[in-house]
Design a protein around this nucleic acid. Structure first.
Lengths: 185, 185
DNA sequence: GTCTATACCGTGATAGAC
DNA sequence: GTCTATCACGGTATAGAC
């Protein structure tokens, strides 16, 4: 036989991609427990058993779906750190990668998501701490990170009324003095 | 027959109490989905079907377990509002009522818990907004509330390393200027 | 009235048929 | 390489024992 138009490796890769896209979307919307393998398969247009075949179990499907390359941060002073943190807000409403939303959505109820969240937050805390002066830089960095976590959770996941439709620049403007106060200057 | 030592109404009340205590504890630790009726029943020392008999379904058991009387707040100015918000931190580590933790634990993955959380946060936002000046009092109040939500989630539920063992007074000291900056003074 | 036993359906997971 | 059969577990409904 001649060369196939779509080599099996390529075909497999595309199918995996469809499954992961569907999984990210459902995990982000429903969280780990309420997302069923069967629903992911249906959304991806494949057989449920195929999902198991590819990813082994639900847990590994989740891991693959939320896998993220943490953006490496450069060097910056306290003010730069504040702007960097606020920058997360300036992504427009389509915004945060679905993988982040999926991880956050499940971080309080799924142990694996909690571990991923702790790790991701820990990295951000460490990066921020390097830009802050003083003994308690890590503690202040942790508080800054959790402040933004609270805003993001309330805005993106809980969809608190008071924040609906508020432009991100407005949020950044209101939060900036608050975060600066946490830098310890 | 003479008077019963434990009238059935009293006996029933105690059984319900045991079930609700067990439910609160498990919901707070595991969240809604991972908490099973069977596990609640076992922890309470009763038959699983009895839980159904009393509460109808898991959803209503959850509602009863997280039911809380919101503390009515008095009148206060912006500084008083900040201290009031910070006061939530000063509860010692045993701390937040388990009903609150149960609600927060599930608020991102269980629709009913999300509704309860939105309602509870909305009440606090409204109370804070009354103490703040300016056009955007409600927005500022929402941000203050979400700031505290982020800290609480990171501290109590995610158990972020950097906050472990930090005295609540220290947290309050670091956060006070940040919250004051949000009052819009 | 209070509680127990049992059965049904959906979900994650495994083994094996086509 | 894809799908079916089957199992264990959890939410739920019902029957009936005490």
């Amino acid at each position: 036989m001649g060369e196939r138009v779509l080599p099996r490796a390529e075909r497999r890769r595309r199918t995996e991609g469809k499954i992961l896209d569907a999984a990210r979307s459902l995990f982000a919307e429903l969280g780990y427990e309420r997302t069923t393998i069967r629903a992911v398969a249906k959304a991806a247009g494949v057989d449920p058993a195929l999902v198991m075949q590819y990813f082994g179990n639900k847990q590994r499907l989740f891991q693959q779906a939320v896998r993220m390359t943490p953006p490496g941060g450069g060097e910056l002073g306290p003010e730069g750190a504040v702007e960097h943190v606020l920058g997360a807000l300036t992504m427009k409403l389509g915004e945060l990668p679905q993988s982040s939303l999926a991880m956050m959505r499940s971080m309080l109820t799924h142990p694996e998501a909690a571990a991923s969240a702790r790790e991701a937050l820990g990295e951000q805390i460490e990066r921020l701490a390097e830009a802050l002066p003083g003994e308690d830089a890590r503690l202040r960095a942790a508080l800054m990170t959790l402040v933004m976590l609270g805003i993001t959770v309330g805005h993106q996941l809980l969809e608190i009324d008071e924040l609906r439709g508020v432009p991100q620049e407005e949020l950044a403007r209101l939060l900036r003095p608050s975060l600066l106060a946490l830098t310890g200057l």
